[in-house]
Design a protein around this nucleic acid. Structure first.
Length: 564
RNA sequence: CGGGGUGUGGCGCAGCCUGGCUAGCGCACCUGCCUUGGGCGCAGGGGGUCGCAGGUUCGAAUCCUGUCACCCCGACCA
């Protein structure tokens, strides 16, 4: 492509709306433009990178036996009502004029097709996938393409007769995903994840560590343990049980509101304090006991409660229900509450909790003697520096971007939409499904987040819109014009994707800055000095390394560099 | 949805508090000359209903009311 003819609108200045590096660079390098909040138009250069990514994904999906579909974005609303997903908050965008919705994902359509055509165990297993645009009603799009209302997703679905079959499909996806992200040149890791409202029995996320990421993950640098903070565990010690069990006593604690104040006031360790959090679960009062300042993890709470709605209780509600304020609530003598506790507190005694009376706490609390705990669960949020459950090394907490997510779905959608098959015994059974997604724009954004410098993007050759950026230093010099055009012809004949900066009246500095901003892996620079010696210059974008090469050796050198 | 911020040529911004001459600056763009190894120089030029709608006023980019859009923090995130 000749740059003088190309539509690649680069920006010298950073658009004020862009905050994270990938967003800034995608705009500056002319990859895309924002149309409205969370919706981007991909321009030719950006689309080329997207096509590179989708092709890699497609090849790896085909390699595990995936069959590509082209599915409708417009879906009948009724389909989503059948699976109960029509009314998930902030999920579906709908069409005003018809009872149609814009598909946010395709479990429903896949199950509908399966219901119609999968009849026998002989028809299974299947791997079906598509690479298409999805729509979601994001309340707050942000971070460029990382969280949009419209995005391209590869989603695939496994259809199996059994959970053993599902495991095979799931594992093959896990391997395909590793291949995909490795080929894209990304440094990624896999974490255990929450299945959330998708339902299902297991899930993992493929993550790229990034300050701009919206997910938080716990990592063990030593043994490789990695989990989403929503499900991560640590080896933090349980609260000990003391031998001598003293009787309950009421302690006057005037104006003590927080756990820190209480620990300071009583001069005791945080682990002796049982903090009470008050929620409503499906409308019913729920008391949650946590150790000291341990933070309740609402994802874990949701899992422990096994579904249903829950929310923290309002201050007035709490006061009217217990007669005390938030800082003085405790498990003893509390009527009408279900009580659960973090497993750190299991069987603990000599604790201090609120007395359900303002300005008083209870000492020498023994959870076994004095309370009825309805269950102990892992409810706490892991904190940095706590030890790894596997190898006892200190854990690290990092932000990350979710590139892909794989789920063992089970039969939720196949049951809702009657996707069933007859087994060997003529019994009708629901198809066992798995669901697997990859965000294509996120691949691009992560690649840029992970590989850039002050001057611009540094593309890996796998995703680079062009492999080579050919620069003619001075188009008023006939020798340079002849030589660079000849080189351009040569590279095209050799099928090396080349962007040729043959703009006249553009200074060398401008061309170099543009080339670094656009970030193609190799720059070939045709200048006066080199030509005198029948040489051209090669610059490696990533390292900045430059070398002079004899013109006859250019093609072979480039081929060697690009196949390395 | 709660909090904060911003809307002024294509981009980045100033002007607004304290209303008043012709709405300004940098970049980009057009023409000519010039220059060619890190975002050249000189000269000339085009382009803006100041987000939108009301209101106050002799007079509104500026003050008031409403509204819309976008960004950030939080909540949410299948």
């Amino acid at each position: 492509m000749r740059l003088s003819k190309a539509f690649i609108p680069t920006l010298k200045e950073i658009p004020s709306d862009a905050v994270i590096p990938s967003h800034q660079l995608m705009l500056r390098a002319g990859l895309m433009r924002q149309l409205t909040a969370g919706v981007y138009a991909f321009l030719p250069l950006g689309y080329r990178a997207m096509l590179k990514a989708t092709q890699i994904v497609r090849e790896e999906m085909n390699a595990i036996g995936g069959q590509e579909f082209h599915l409708p974005a417009l879906n009948p609303e009724s389909l989503w009502i059948q699976t109960g997903r029509r009314n998930i908050p902030n999920f579906i965008l709908s069409v005003k004029e018809r009872d149609l919705v814009l598909a946010p994902t395709h479990e429903e359509v896949i199950a509908w097709i399966a219901a119609m055509h999968i009849q026998s165990y002989k028809d299974l297993p299947q791997i079906w996938y598509q690479i298409q645009t999805k729509f979601r009603n994001e309340p707050r799009p942000r971070s460029g393409v990382l969280r949009g209302r419209q995005f391209v997703m590869k989603d695939s679905y496994t259809l199996d007769t059994s959970y053993d079959g599902l495991d095979i499909g799931y594992d093959s996806h896990a391997q395909a995903y590793r291949n995909i992200f490795t080929r894209c040149g990304l440094k990624f890791f896999v974490v255990g994840a929450s299945s959330g409202a998708m339902g299902g029995t297991g899930s993992q996320e493929f993550m790229v560590e990034s300050e701009s990421g919206e997910d938080t993950v716990v990592l063990c640098p030593k043994c490789g343990y990695a989990a989403n903070l929503e499900v991560a565990a640590s080896g933090i010690a349980k609260v000990s049980r003391a031998g001598d069990n003293k009787p309950l006593e009421e302690i006057h604690t005037p104006n003590v509101k927080t756990i820190d104040e209480l620990a300071a006031f009583l001069k005791v360790d945080h682990t002796r304090l049982a903090k009470s959090l008050v929620y409503r679960h499906n409308g019913k009062p729920l008391l949650i006991l946590m150790t000291g300042n341990d933070q309740l993890n609402e994802s874990k709470l949701g899992a422990a409660l096994g579904g249903g709605e829950f929310r923290a209780m309002e201050a007035e509600e709490l006061k009217s229900l217990t007669g005390a304020d938030g800082g003085s609530i405790g498990p003893v003598g509390l009527k009408g509450f279900r009580i659960i506790a973090d497993e750190r507190l299991e069987g603990a005694n000599n604790l201090i909790s609120g007395a359900n009376r303002n300005d008083y706490h209870l000492g020498n609390l023994d959870l076994i003697r004095d309370t009825t705990i309805d269950g102990y669960f892992d409810l706490r949020t892991v904190e940095t520096g706590e030890t790894c459950t596997t190898c006892a090394s200190p854990l690290k907490i990092a932000n990350a971007i979710e590139l892909g997510h794989i789920f063992k779905l089970g039969t939720k959608y196949s049951e809702a939409l009657n996707a069933s098959y007859l087994d060997e015994n003529g019994q009708s059974k629901p198809v066992v499904m798995g669901s697997y997604g990859i965000g294509i724009e996120r691949i691009i954004a992560c690649a840029i987040e992970q590989s850039r410098d002050a001057n611009g993007i540094i593309w890996d050759k796998a995703l680079a819109p062009y492999q080579i950026h050919l620069i003619a230093i001075n188009m008023s010099n006939k020798d340079i014009v002849l030589a660079s055009n000849e080189i351009y012809r040569l590279l095209n004949e050799a099928a090396l994707e080349t962007l040729f900066d043959e703009r006249a009246n553009v200074s060398p500095g401008f061309k170099f800055k543009d080339a670094d901003l656009l970030g193609m892996p190799i720059q070939v620079i045709v200048g006066e000095k080199g030509l005198k010696n029948n040489q051209v210059e090669i610059k490696v974008r990533r390292t900045g390394e430059r070398s002079m090469i004899a013109r006859e050796e250019l093609l072979s050198t480039l081929k060697a560099m690009l196949s390395a």
